[in-house]
Amino acid sequence: MTHTFILASASPRRRQLLAEAGYSFEVDPSDLIESEPLAGVAPAEYAADLAWRKARAVADRRKTGLILAADTVCAVGAEILNKPIDRDDAERMIRLQEGHDTEVITGLCLYRADRPEWLGAVEISVVRFRPLSDSERRSYLDSGRWEGKSGGYGVQDHDPFVTVAGGSFSNVVGLPMERLAELLAAHPNFMK
């Protein structure tokens, strides 16, 4: 790949996806405090805004470079599920999703720090979440695998109760690689 990014994220999953796709990048997390969404804000709007704010924070600090930022949330209907704050919050999220399809929404932002100009996109995938028995739920919550994961689960961890029912697998992991490639291909002058 000819593009070198400054990844505005500390996510090991995003780093792995970029590395596996052959992109060159360095990591400079935005350290943006992710505020809870305001009432009535659509999940896609919320994810896109957070991605833009993360990219802008790094661009303001760096002054040059191509910043890549993303933010992934889960949504059941209009309810946005961020990363659980504790075990009780993880249980609430898991119970809310059980037996339902959950949307996994990633806002993606490419930001040119030196101009400043930016491109954005939103990718939506669907995850099917099967009902859990009380012992399965308790075992999962006790494992701590829900920590740091939007919606309280990670499809990349092969959690047996979730399957990608539609859309991009990499989006569910946290970075829609197909959409990133489309943005880069559709806007070659943006990269110069």
Results as ranks from 00 to 15, higher is better:
residue 184 L to V: 05
residue 81 L to T: 12
residue 146 W to Y: 08
residue 92 R to N: 01
residue 166 G to P: 03
residue 71 D to K: 06
residue 127 V to F: 09
residue 163 T to V: 11
residue 191 M to S: 00
residue 119 L to A: 13
residue 155 V to T: 00
residue 80 I to S: 11
residue 46 Y to V: 05
residue 7 L to S: 02
residue 81 L to W: 11
residue 68 L to D: 03
residue 95 R to E: 15
residue 129 F to D: 02
residue 49 D to H: 06
residue 61 R to E: 02
residue 83 K to T: 11
residue 133 S to M: 14
residue 53 R to P: 05
residue 131 P to L: 05
residue 110 L to F: 05
residue 75 A to W: 14
residue 125 S to T: 05
residue 33 I to R: 15
residue 89 D to E: 08
residue 121 A to F: 08
residue 105 I to C: 06
residue 121 A to L: 09
residue 69 A to M: 01
residue 78 A to I: 04
residue 2 T to F: 06
residue 86 D to V: 11
residue 3 H to V: 15
residue 124 I to Q: 12
residue 39 A to Q: 12
residue 31 D to A: 14
residue 10 A to M: 02
residue 23 Y to A: 01
residue 120 G to N: 00
residue 56 R to I: 12
residue 75 A to N: 01
residue 36 E to M: 07
residue 158 H to A: 15
residue 38 L to Y: 00
residue 105 I to F: 07
residue 49 D to W: 05
residue 25 F to I: 10
residue 27 V to Y: 10
residue 117 E to D: 06
residue 125 S to Q: 03
residue 78 A to T: 15
residue 145 R to N: 14
residue 14 R to N: 08
residue 164 V to A: 07
residue 6 I to F: 13
residue 100 H to C: 14
residue 65 G to D: 10
residue 135 S to M: 14
residue 51 A to Q: 03
residue 33 I to D: 15
residue 27 V to K: 13
residue 102 T to S: 13
residue 191 M to Y: 00
residue 133 S to R: 14
residue 50 L to T: 06
residue 131 P to A: 13
residue 116 P to E: 12
residue 145 R to S: 00
residue 61 R to N: 08
residue 88 D to P: 07
residue 145 R to Q: 14
residue 135 S to P: 09
residue 59 A to T: 02
residue 88 D to I: 05
residue 94 I to D: 12
residue 40 G to P: 04
residue 138 R to M: 09
residue 82 N to M: 10
residue 163 T to W: 08
residue 150 S to G: 06
residue 68 L to Q: 06
residue 142 D to E: 14
residue 152 G to I: 08
residue 95 R to I: 10
residue 85 I to F: 01
residue 179 R to I: 02
residue 57 A to P: 06
residue 126 V to N: 13
residue 69 A to L: 01
residue 10 A to P: 13
residue 89 D to F: 11
residue 161 F to N: 05
residue 186 A to R: 03
residue 186 A to W: 09
residue 191 M to L: 15
residue 138 R to Q: 15
residue 15 R to C: 12
residue 183 L to S: 12
residue 140 Y to K: 04
residue 107 G to Y: 11
residue 31 D to Y: 00
residue 144 G to L: 13
residue 8 A to Q: 06
residue 16 Q to V: 10
residue 184 L to H: 04
residue 74 C to G: 07
residue 41 V to Q: 15
residue 73 V to P: 04
residue 146 W to I: 08
residue 125 S to V: 09
residue 88 D to Y: 03
residue 80 I to F: 01
residue 123 E to C: 09
residue 179 R to M: 12
residue 173 V to Q: 00
residue 97 Q to V: 04
residue 63 K to V: 03
residue 99 G to K: 02
residue 124 I to N: 10
residue 155 V to C: 09
residue 54 K to W: 00
residue 136 E to F: 07
residue 142 D to M: 03
residue 187 H to K: 07
residue 155 V to S: 11
residue 33 I to P: 13
residue 7 L to V: 03
residue 89 D to N: 08
residue 134 D to S: 15
residue 166 G to W: 12
residue 185 A to G: 01
residue 39 A to G: 11
residue 54 K to Y: 02
residue 24 S to F: 14
residue 69 A to D: 07
residue 118 W to T: 04
residue 94 I to W: 13
residue 99 G to P: 01
residue 122 V to S: 02
residue 190 F to T: 08
residue 69 A to V: 06
residue 170 S to Y: 13
residue 57 A to H: 05
residue 186 A to S: 05
residue 175 L to M: 04
residue 180 L to Q: 04
residue 33 I to F: 09
residue 10 A to D: 01
